[in-house]
Structure formats: structure tokens, C-alpha cells
Design a protein around this nucleic acid. Structure first.
Length: 464
RNA sequence: GCCGGCGUAGCUCAGCUUGGUUAGAGCAGCGGUCUUUUAAACCGAGGGUCGCAGGUUCGAAUCCUGUCGCCGGCACCA
């Protein structure tokens, strides 16, 4: 877009840009080095004294012109601080230059910090430099940017206009960091496994297909991390994990983005009961990392995240809520429809039907079920784990059963993976595996209603 | 994919039910007044393909149909 098509406000700024260039001012200059952040500068000033001059850089947010003086807010990564410009200090022409700056411009300023009569911490501008001229007007200063379509499509504007959005993403990083730190401290090795795969396994989902030109072969984007991580246990690593993006070719919703972040861990010589304790520890660590206590509120509903979490067999829960005895897929269907939405407080649901769990170990006492659990909070799934199936003969039969469903038209049934079977035939140690949907955990801990609020650039349809 | 809601100035919103001069306000921008303001204030002049395309009508932001996008629900997603 350019020229005649542009809104007047943008045309005006282009003209202003040309005037600056004509006056010998570089509107995209460099070389300015801030000495402090706004927060650091704020901390320098005491009750009434003036500080030595400091240099700050950031985005000009609001201007208030009062004749021979001018006030403005400067926003940087750390926050905001008020600026004051005075004609007496800057001189006529420099003051006018400052007065002509637009909200949105990136500038560097140098001067002492003091408090105004009303106590506002303020930098008195001794000199300033235009660093980057902004050509587009910012959202309104009072109401901010509310249009969710613009917020998601133009996240950069959202981050400028809604500083609390930055806090969500800072929390996201802290939460992931806390999980990494917990696992590292327990001797887990963080690894990276292929995103492009020949066989998209480890989950039940429709994959994205892509094509490698040089190999002239279709490849799939991974839907899970599981099968490669278990190969690494075969190889001798005893505790591994990966935090990575997985891709599922499914519909979108406030809880589903086509690409999302999964944490998977595998621990040799552990079973699913030990994984439950690991999950509890992860919840505690990540809650603290998010700066919250164990009693949290999500969208107005209170949740107590204090371990130990309730543990219930799926079949018992279904009897409790429906009065019905069931097994297999029917049991799972009843659970999902009548029980899961009612599980509000953290609950480990255990012992899933074998038909829907092709990678999990059978229960020794009842081969219709596997040693598996999911962590349900507020009716949503946050973790999925099992004692892994290590018997290669059984594993092949499970894959064959899935292949039969696939042949019957279920595009999401687990595909046969001969290389994985070969690995298991070499010997997979007894182990417990875990998958955690990181985005949903972050939604919970930052009280965000949509997965799009915790993913910086969520998938959107083409802008028209 | 299905159902419902929404789409008006750069941003936040009125106006639509019940069709009727030239589509409004605040903020932002522009021109003024103003040297401690902070949603600064005051005066003035601008800024619009009412998502898009058809239709009904003397006349459409308003009613109808289609379409695009966003939001929510369902389906899908163990």
C-alpha cells in the first residue's frame, strides 16, 4: 500500500519524514546507547534530588504539549517513564523538533531524573535523538487495542499497546524454563529429534504432509515426539526429554492451534506411578515460575494445585457418574462425554482401555487395560503418560490392529513403523513416558482464555 | 464442515430494531492558544468504498442473498 491508497494519518507522517530528511535529520539513525532502562532510571531518584544525566531509549507513547514545555511518556521493555522538554533548556528549534515527534517514534533521550510537583518521576530532556520514525499511528491511548483480529495478526502492535500481553509471554518463558531446570536437575538429557518424519507416529492425529524435492518423497511434520525419544532409550540414554513444536492437521478452537508445544519425557526403570509424582513436581515448579500460589483462579474458577492429586480409575469414574459398566472405546467415550467435563480439580485418571493405547504396557492383572494416566484439570487434559510397552511382539500386534483401523478408513490410526519395531527388538528398557501440552499449561497458569493468547503468532486464515 | 454472533475514520465506539438531508463522537493526526502536565485543557479545519459483491426500493450503513474475515459453539482433536 502506498500513495493515494493510504489513510491520511500515514500520508502526513510520510511528509513529516521528508521534512526531517530535508532538514538534515536522519529519521533512521543509530549509535545511541542507553545507559539505563526506564525501571533502572526510576530507581535512581530519591525523594526530591536530581540525578546525574542518564540516557534512555524507547518508544514515545503519549505527548502533552503546554506551550513552552512538553511532556511525553517513553516506553521501553521494562516499563514507562515521563519525559519533560522545555523550550528554555532545549532552545527554540530543538524544542520544536521534539514537539513534532509522533507517538510511536523510537527515540533516545539524555538528562537528569527528578520528580515533578505532583511526584511523577520524570526525565528532563537535555538532548534527544530520533532513532526510528514511525509511519503508522498507534492504537488509542486510553482504550488501547481491543480488536482480537488485529491483536493476533499484528502481534507487534498488541505488544506495544497492551503491555500486560508481554507479561503473559514472559511467564511463558519462565514456565518452560522452570520445567527445563527441573528435568535438567534430575539428570534428564534434553535432545532434539526430527520434525520431518517418514512415519508420523506417537499420537492419534492427522498429520501435515510436505514434499522433499531432491529426494522426491513425501514427508510428514511430526504429531508427537514419542517414538524417537524411545529409540534414544534403546540407545542407552536413560532419561531424555524434548520440548518442541508438533503439528496436527485438525480444526482450530480456543484450545487447539495447528502447531503447538509439547514436552515429552522418558525415564528408564520408572513406571507411571513415578511419572505421576514427576507431573506433580512439574505443576508445583511451573506454578511458582508463573508467580502464582497453589490456589489459582482460572477464568473465575478456583483450582487447588496442591499435590498429591486425586487418582481414580477411568472405569470407576464412569460407574460413579453414569452407573454404567463399560470397556474399550465405549468406556473412553462415556468418560469423555460424562466424566471429563466434571473433573474440575486436578485428577489423575488411570487405567485406560488398551484399544486406544497402542504404545502403553498392559496391566498385569487385567489385560483389557493399560498402565496409563491423564491429568485432568477443569475438564481439560494437561498430561498423558504411561508405562511404556517394551515387548516387541505385543507392539507389532498393536500396530497391526491400528493398521487394520487405518485400512478401514481411520486416517488417524497409528501407522506401522518398522524402524521403531526394530529398535524395540534390540531392547527398550522398562520405562515411563510423559507428554505435556505446554500451551494449555501456560493458559492455566496465566489465566488466558484462548490458546491464541499464549502463542505469539497463532495460525490465522489468509488476510483478504 | 455445520450453527450463531460480529465487521462503520488509524484506534475505541454510536447509528441498524422501525430504510429518508451531506454517516456521528472521543482519542490520534493537522492549524492555533498555553512553561509542571499526566485520559492535560480550549478554539478551528480535515479524515469514510459503512468488509466485499449482487438484489429489493424513488431512496440502503440500515432490508434480502451470496461471499471473505474474526469470535463462540458443535464436529474433529484418545
Amino acid at each position: 500500500m502506498s500513495g493515494e491508497d493510504e489513510p491520511e494519518v500515514i500520508r502526513d507522517r510520510r511528509k513529516k519524514l521528508e521534512r526531517l530528511r530535508a532538514a538534515g535529520i536522519d529519521p533512521y539513525s543509530r549509535g545511541f546507547k542507553p545507559t539505563h532502562s526506564t525501571a533502572e532510571a526510576r530507581a535512581l531518584v530519591g525523594d526530591s534530588e536530581r540525578t546525574e544525566p542518564v540516557s534512555l531509549a524507547g518508544r514515545l507513547m503519549v505527548k502533552r504539549l503546554l506551550g513552552g514545555s512538553a511532556f511525553a511518556d517513553l516506553q521501553d521493555q521494562a516499563g514507562r517513564i515521563q519525559l519533560m522538554a522545555s523550550r528554555d533548556i532545549l532552545g527554540e528549534s530543538t524544542f520544536d523538533l521534539f514537539a513534532e515527534l509522533d507517538p510511536g517514534d523510537l527515540i533516545g533521550v539524555t538528562g537528569p531524573i527528578f520528580r515533578t510537583r505532583r511526584g511523577e518521576v520524570t526525565l528532563e530532556i537535555g538532548s534527544f535523538q530520533l532513532l526510528t520514525k514511525s509511519l503508522r499511528p498507534l492504537p488509542e491511548k486510553w482504550h488501547g487495542l481491543k480488536d482480537v483480529e488485529i491483536r493476533y495478526r499484528q502481534r507487534y502492535v498488541d505488544l506495544i499497546a497492551n503491555p500486560q500481553v508481554r507479561d503473559v509471554f514472559r511467564s511463558r518463558t519462565k514456565i518452560i524454563g522452570s520445567l527445563r531446570s527441573l528435568l535438567d536437575g534430575r539428570g534428564f538429557l534434553e535432545v532434539e529429534t526430527p520434525v520431518l518424519q517418514e512415519v508420523p507416529g506417537g499420537g492419534h492425529a492427522r498429520p501435515f504432509v510436505t514434499h522433499h524435492e531432491a529426494l522426491d518423497r513425501d514427508l510428514y511434520l511430526r504429531i508427537a515426539l514419542e517414538l524417537h525419544l524411545k529409540r534414544l532409550l534403546v540407545g542407552g540414554f536413560e532419561r531424555v526429554y524434548e520440548i518442541g513444536r508438533v503439528f496436527r492437521n485438525e480444526g482450530l478452537s480456543p484450545r487447539h492451534n495447528p502447531e503447538f508445544t509439547m514436552l515429552e519425557t522418558y525415564e528408564a526403570y520408572a513406571d507411571y506411578t513415578e511419572v505421576m509424582r514427576l507431573v506433580e513436581d512439574m505443576v508445583v515448579a511451573s506454578t511458582a515460575a508463573a508467580g502464582r500460589t497453589s490456589m489459582i483462579t482460572y477464568q473465575g474458577e478456583e483450582v487447588d494445585l496442591t499435590p498429591p492429586f486425586r487418582r481414580e480409575r477411568m472405569a470407576d469414574l464412569v460407574v460413579e457418574h453414569t452407573g454404567r459398566q463399560a470397556v474399550g472405546k465405549e468406556l473412553n467415550d462415556l468418560f469423555e462425554e460424562f466424566v471429563e467435563p466434571k473433573l474440575r480439580q486436578p485428577t489423575f485418571v488411570t487405567d485406560y482401555p488398551i484399544e486406544i493405547s497402542p504404545l502403553a504396557r498392559r496391566r498385569d492383572d487385567d489385560p483389557r487395560f493399560v498402565e496409563r494416566f491423564e491429568l485432568i484439570i477443569l475438564g481439560r487434559e494437561y498430561a498423558n503418560a504411561f508405562t511404556e510397552l517394551t515387548d516387541p511382539i505385543d507392539q507389532r500386534q498393536r500396530f497391526e490392529a491400528q493398521a487394520a483401523q487405518r485400512a478401514a478408513g481411520d486416517v488417524e490410526a497409528h501407522p506401522m513403523d518398522e524402524d521403531f519395531l526394530r529398535a524395540v527388538e534390540y531392547g527398550l528398557p522398562p520405562c515411563g513416558g510423559l507428554g505435556v501440552g505446554i500451551d494449555r499449561l501456560i493458559m492455566l497458569l496465566t489465566d488466558q482464555p484462548s490458546i491464541r493468547d499464549v502463542i505469539l503468532f497463532p495460525v490465522m486464515k489468509a488476510e483478504s
